[in-house]
């Protein structure tokens, strides 16, 4: 193997990012991943376990880990924390009753040291539903201002159903991660 091909290989590896998608059940994590990958979203069963998708996005390769959000399997989230560059927290903006649960789980997650360096994107999903709270309202309810101020975070309203806002969110996440870990390029 020539030196050049080794260098190319390392370079390619460098451009990889590991993205972890979490959030309560029924928030739309799998739908977001499939939608952004241009796949059919009409038949999606609640995730039992996890899905991995590798997506080429701009000049980066995203390894997206979409982990099921049912209560029983939330305790397994921590198995996926290692080497996460970008964290995506998905919120069902129309599920007002469970926003307390949502905030609790999010802040619990952010205490995790292995995620302390990860950029955080919050998707206020289901904006297409009439009664959904706006991203600003979600930010207040989730008490996002109280986060450690070294954390890079952003909240973006989206609809996995129509696809609106998904690219905006991922653009920010990928740029933020890239500027942090590939700034020597």
């Amino acid at each position: 193997m020539g030196l050049l091909s080794i260098i190319r290989k390392i370079k390619r590896k460098e451009k990889e990012m590991r993205i972890l998608m979490v959030g309560l059940d029924n928030s739309g994590k799998t739908t977001i991943v499939l939608k952004i990958n241009g796949e059919d979203t009409s038949v999606i069963s609640p995730t039992l376990g996890f899905n991995i998708k590798t997506i080429t996005y701009q000049k980066y390769t995203l390894n997206i880990w979409d982990v099921g959000g049912q209560k029983t399997i939330r305790s397994y989230w921590r198995n996926y924390f290692e080497q996460t560059d970008g964290l995506v927290w998905v919120v069902d903006s129309s599920d007002l009753r469970r926003l307390d649960d949502c905030r609790y789980e999010l802040h619990n997650l952010l205490k995790e040291e292995r995620l302390s360096g990860a950029s955080l994107l919050i998707f206020a999903n289901k904006q297409d539903i009439q009664g959904a709270l706006s991203p600003d309202e979600i930010a207040k309810v989730l008490n996002l201002e109280a986060m450690d101020n070294s954390r890079h975070w952003r909240i973006v309203g989206c609809s996995a159903y129509t696809g609106e806002g998904l690219l905006e969110g991922f653009d920010w996440l990928v740029q933020d991660v890239a500027s942090r870990i590939y700034m020597l390029d």
Binding site: L96, D100, H107, G131, L133, N143
Partner: peptide, 18 residues
Amino acid sequence: NTANVESENSGFRALDSP
């Protein structure tokens, strides 16, 4: 300070969905 983050805001009630 971290423990307080969760205990705050627990009084959130805005159930205005039909």
